[in-house]
């Protein structure tokens, strides 16, 4: 029993020092000059633009990934078609790809010297950032919804069809309510990851302040380029706040899932 406590303490100690302390330091530096200073730093035009750009990307990416995530989950859980096994593996692929590579691949494809010869203005603009973010969040909704679909089985759907419901009516009234929690969980994960995305965006985004800078790019730019460390900490705090909200939502949904 005491071994367990020793192990526990050692590992927690490590985590405490290397996770809590850095985050606490950021918070400290952010608020050591008071709330007003913090507020001013995160409401500069560049900051507002960055926050709104990040949220815009989320607003586009989430519906896209929900729709296609649902379609994919349905295909994998209910369908029977050649190549299904490969699709299953391919869906998880984004986890194995370094974000920087995602960005580079997009440039190689869409960039002015790229494969399409820059036919469409994707790189350094919103579409490119959306594409990068879509890629890295691709698996989340699928992975959360597919197991639920498998678990609830097809009986309820069959019953609905015998009662006269069309495929769409069955999906909308029976399937969707049953997988609700899985969808929400997937959305929460997607939002968290989208807001925190940095590596891929650093490659494909213009990073121009007030224009093509997301919150993460803002933090980086302030810290490294402008040496505005306070500004960087303040913006980081905003990101941390969003992460905290994510954690709370995840915990709440987790409890609903067990029910």
């Amino acid at each position: 029993m005491s071994t367990r406590i020793a192990l526990r303490t050692a590992a927690l100690g490590y985590l405490g020092v290397l996770v809590l302390v850095p985050l606490a330091m950021i918070l400290y530096r952010t608020f050591e000059d008071g709330l007003v200073a913090f507020f001013q730093s995160v409401t500069t035009p560049a900051a507002i633009s960055a926050i709104s750009l990040s949220l815009t990307i989320v607003a586009i990416v989430v519906p896209l990934n929900v729709v296609f995530g649902l379609v994919t989950a349905l295909a994998l859980a209910r369908g029977n078609f050649p190549g299904k096994g490969i699709l299953q593996a391919v869906v998880d692929l984004p986890f194995a790809v370094s974000p920087v590579i995602v960005g580079v691949a997009l440039i190689l494809f869409w960039g002015n010297d790229g494969w399409l010869g820059g036919a469409l203005p994707v790189i350094f603009s919103l579409p490119g950032m959306v594409l990068a973010t879509v890629f890295v969040t691709l698996p989340f909704v699928v992975r959360e919804v597919e197991p639920v679909l498998r678990e609830i089985g097809t009986e309820q759907e069959e019953a609905a069809s015998t009662l006269g419901a069309s495929r769409w009516q069955t999906f909308w009234r029976i399937t969707l309510p049953a997988i609700k929690v899985g969808v929400f969980y997937g959305v929460v994960l997607t939002v968290a990851r989208s807001l925190g995305e940095f590596g891929a965006l650093t490659v494909v985004a213009g990073g121009v302040a007030g224009e093509s800078q997301t919150l993460t790019l803002l933090v980086h730019a302030r810290y490294i380029d402008d040496h505005n460390t306070f500004g960087a900490y303040a913006a980081s705090t905003v990101l941390m706040g969003l992460a905290l909200v994510t954690l709370v939502l995840m915990a709440l949904l987790e409890r609903r899932r067990e029910a």
């Binding site: 019953a159 609905a160 015998t162 029976i174 309510p177 049953a178």
Partner: peptide, 13 residues
């Protein structure tokens, strides 16, 4: 037709 399933297929929600 009307169909009744072994495991009820109740609409849980």
């Amino acid at each position: 037709i009307g169909f009744v399933f072994q495991h009820y297929a109740a609409f849980k929600h």
